[in-house]
Amino acid sequence: MIRAGIIGGSGYTGGELIRLLLGHPAITLDFVYSTTRAGKPLSDGHPDLLGVTEARFSGKVNPEVDVVFLCLGHGNSSTFLGAHKFSPQTKVIDLSNDFRLHAESQFQGRSFVYGLPEFQREAIEAASHIANPGCFATAIQLALLPLAQAGFLGEAVHINAVTGSTGAGVSPSATTHYSWRNNNVSWYKPFTHQHLGEIGESLAALQPDAGELLFLPMRGNFTRGIFATAYTRFTDSLQAAETLFDSYYQDAPFTVRSPHPLDLKQVVNTNFAHLHLHKHGDYLLVSSVIDNLLKGASGQAVQNMNLLFGLEEKLGLELKASAF
């Protein structure tokens, strides 16, 4: 059994990771480290675990685990790794944005590989340290990677994506408070969202002359999921685009092209990404839906762990959506 530890287990991504690892047939959850809940039952912080486990949050870290997941706030993973030493054999999967960009991927002798399996599965399989992609970045890259590989992103790409309130984390704020978020919608960080950096680097690796990404992020009045749309000029046929996507994702177990328009319930509570293509004149519209906490965070982290340890990629992640 693979011994796993979680650093920062009291938030949304930590809670989803606990749920997945407790049900994973190849994993023993060694510890869930939390400075604010040490000694308390995991179910105190995550009521959905009541009756599932009697385990408690720990105030100590076992440096000898086989894999450790960092579920810390952005900017805190590098600080934590600087203060805590793990075994040279311990694999690290970071869910923050600390190591996603090329310029930040080297840290104290560790080399972090960008963990989007549909982009670079072989590099992940050979790695020891993984920088898990951002949630918006995952949904948007999956919509665009096949086009970049074929050289069809020479012009600007217009992107709109709406995310649920869990994307903002567990700590309440003015824009996640129920009274404000309910029956409401708004944009934020127009054209400047932090995930643009990692998206741009991946696309440029496939198509160096890729066009500008014009991204408008939106806050939705729901809790889970991301619905992203991206359109750009594409003068070939819809059938040609569908063939392109089907070929690119033929070996991707979690990324599926749907012949029908999408909705979020298809993917919420799963590690799937569903894509749909629509042609209008000389423009191709690509829709992409994921669960921001699973394929956009904890589920993808487990997917990366499976690849690191040579396990079947879908192991522990065969979750069905509730479509009604």
Rank of each mutant, 00 (worst) to 15 (best):
P133F: 01
H129I: 01
V170C: 11
S171V: 01
N182E: 14
Q141C: 04
N160F: 05
A174Q: 08
Q141F: 02
Q149P: 09
G109Q: 07
L196A: 00
Q194R: 07
L147Y: 02
N184H: 13
G134A: 04
L144V: 00
R181K: 13
A131D: 04
R181H: 09
N184I: 02
R121P: 12
A174F: 07
S165Y: 01
S171G: 09
Q141D: 04
H195C: 03
H158G: 03
Q194E: 00
P190T: 06
I124C: 13
P133N: 03
A137Q: 04
E118K: 15
S173K: 07
S186L: 12
T163N: 15
N183R: 14
A127K: 14
F152W: 13
I130N: 08
L144C: 05
P117T: 08
I159T: 05
G115N: 12
L144Q: 01
V170R: 15
A148N: 04
Q120W: 10
Q120R: 15
I159Q: 12
L145C: 03
L196T: 00
P190G: 05
P133G: 02
T176Y: 10
F191K: 14
R181D: 10
S179F: 12
Y188V: 00
A123I: 07
G115H: 11
A139V: 01
F107S: 08
T176M: 07
A127N: 11
S171C: 03
Q194Y: 04
Y178W: 14
G154V: 03
G164N: 05
S111F: 09
V185Q: 14
R121S: 12
N183M: 11
Y178V: 07
T138W: 13
H129V: 01
F152D: 15
E118Y: 15
E198R: 01
E155V: 06
F112V: 02
A161K: 14
E118D: 13
F119I: 06
G134P: 04
N160C: 06
V113M: 13
A156H: 11
T176H: 12
A126E: 05
L144P: 02
P172H: 14
